[in-house]
Design a binder for these strands. Structure first.
Lengths: 339, 339
DNA sequence: TTGTATGCGTTATCAT
DNA sequence: ATGATAACGCATACAA
């Protein structure tokens, strides 16, 4: 393990003092120096292969140039695009993300918060947090830590958020199946403890109420998983008056519903239409290709990173919720109401 | 922004010296102290909400407790499980991963390497690097940086690696289609600059040569993408003597092949069987469900993280390649040879 | 324009 | 068993 080159060694080689070398290598202060000195220092740094120490710098400036991120589960398909969006913005600004997974466990979240705070992250990107209990948000608020909610709203904590337009999405989904003639429609809701799925549920109920002669219902899943989609769909199929269309709270629930439908010997979309939400990667390659609401996932990531960086640079944080537009993506899982 | 609590403040409240407080809070050294002192310090820390500063500690101990990771693209479906496996091992040991994406660009890789080294990562997890050009590996070697290759082999650089058993996988895939009666088989190879896809290609050629009466060929994709799968499969369909089975170098190529097959008005598996490699998430939900070689992705992550941690803790690094077993996952995309 | 000195928050060595 | 002191590598206020 080769020993690291420090600023002092560079200074020595260039024949100047540490402080001068520091100034020469910092674009901000480089102008205060003799142009020739700057050149000499830079050359010395180059020839020694000098790499500044971010730890020392961070300690001195009390800025780590890192951002902490807590998500439930990276293998949940919506997160990879979101994370890439975030890094796309962070990286050119010299920031790096510390990515952690909580699996939705509040205790784990809390300990991840500790770990990230220990590392002196300059801000937090939170794709986690339920509306009912938010230990991390409460602590971040108490500690004066900057944070942006990603694809979730903060509830009562005063943090900015970047989310997709659930209301418009549900409206589009409902209109789509209404146009196809469906009049018995069920919403497969996610847990009401998540702001996203709760919004979708409320949007569905509000919209459904406004349609005369519509038979509708809501079935709630305990989490946003394929397994829960399967389970709740089975529940739906067991009801006396089967719906002809199902609007799922997200794509995973929709995929689970697809499984149950097939297993029950029914066909989608001939017997039953299914709609997802999110347009996760490969939604179009499923069997049948999933009609869903497209959410600009990567953009959600970009936007939240931008908001956080802005907060970090300005030091102020306004609890604004930024809502990104969605669109209907019609594929194979929806069709005309069966005769 | 609440001001941070430092060790000195804790010490003051407990009525001891900084150094003593430090020892009291460190499980390693806690035993040297009076048990009552330890209690007092811990209580003071608790009541003040003390959070140790990882930057300062890292600077002092020259250990950042972070690990850098360079992958081509997080949205490539094999990486989320791998990354989760890595974090599963890292987190309980107090390590955090700095995740970065290179998009396969060598210049980007190199600059990511700089950025990670600046941050004094204790080691590197590299899921990147081509066999022909490996600037990052060469630099890591020169700088004496510990690194483990993830799902890639190092080529000439002396780094350990964790990979899946490509040879056995290809053998299984080939045997499977041979049993189904296929005798005209094509391998959709990934670029030979990647160690994985090169191994699969070589394994295919070797195995195919050993089968009497087999008509076989290899078509090479420029990268591991759906689009390339589509393109190369079109090339295959344009040949005079169409194969009845296609073994793809990975699932994305297979999925692209599926697209082209459908677009050409052919059916899979009735007209043409297709096999993937990796068993990426949702491979079983594609249309048709993809028969593929299951690779223990999460385990690859776990294993590489373990190897890296071991190297960090011991300071020594042996260039051992650990090969993990794979299995055949039969689903819907393979069937008997058409009559 | 450049050198000097100090401190960021820890841990570790050496005293006591 | 604990206190004093130095050092990790850097940036900056101050002095020259």
């Amino acid at each position: 393990m080769a020993t690291r080159v420090t600023l002092s060694e560079v200074a020595e080689l260039a024949g100047v003092h540490r402080g001068t070398a520091s100034r020469a290598l910092n674009p901000q202060t480089e102008s205060q120096l003799n142009i020739d000195t700057v050149r000499r220092v830079k050359q010395a740094a180059e020839s020694l292969g000098y790499v500044p120490d971010a730890l020392a710098r961070g300690l001195r400036m009390s800025r780590s140039m890192t951002v902490g991120m807590i998500i439930p589960d990276l293998t949940s398909p919506i997160f990879p695009p979101i994370v890439r969006g975030i890094e796309e913005i962070l990286q050119p600004q010299g920031y790096t993300a510390l990515l952690t997974n909580s699996d939705g466990d509040l205790a784990v979240e809390s300990s991840l918060y500790d770990s990230l705070r220990q590392r002196r992250v300059d801000g937090l990107l939170l794709a986690t947090g339920r509306l009912d209990e938010q230990p991390v948000l409460a602590r971040a608020q108490a500690d004066g830590v900057l944070a942006v909610m990603v694809n979730r709203e903060a509830g009562r904590a005063p943090f900015p958020a970047v989310i997709a337009d659930s209301q418009a999405g549900i409206r589009m989904a409902l209109d789509h199946v209404l146009e196809l003639g469906h009049r018995r429609i069920v919403h497969l809701s996610g847990p009401t403890s998540f702001s996203t799925t709760r919004q979708r549920r409320e949007a569905f109920v509000a919209a459904a109420r406004g349609v005369a002669g519509l038979e509708w219902g809501v079935h709630e899943a305990a989490d946003l998983s394929i397994a829960e989609g399967e389970r709740v769909m089975a529940e739906v199929l067991a009801t006396s008056h089967r719906p002809t269309a199902v609007l799922a709270g997200n794509d995973l629930l929709a995929l689970g519903a697809l499984h149950t439908i097939r297993r029950a010997g029914l066909r989608c979309p001939e017997d039953l239409s299914v709609l997802g939400f999110n347009d996760m990667p490969f939604a179009g390659d499923l069997s049948p290709a999933l009609t869903t609401i497209h959410v600009p996932l990567r953009q959600i990531g970009c936007e939240s990173a931008r908001m956080l960086l802005q907060a970090i640079n300005s030091g102020v944080q306004k609890p604004i919720t930024r809502t990104l537009p969605v669109s209907l993506q019609v594929r194979e899982s929806t069709g005309p109401v069966p005769a």
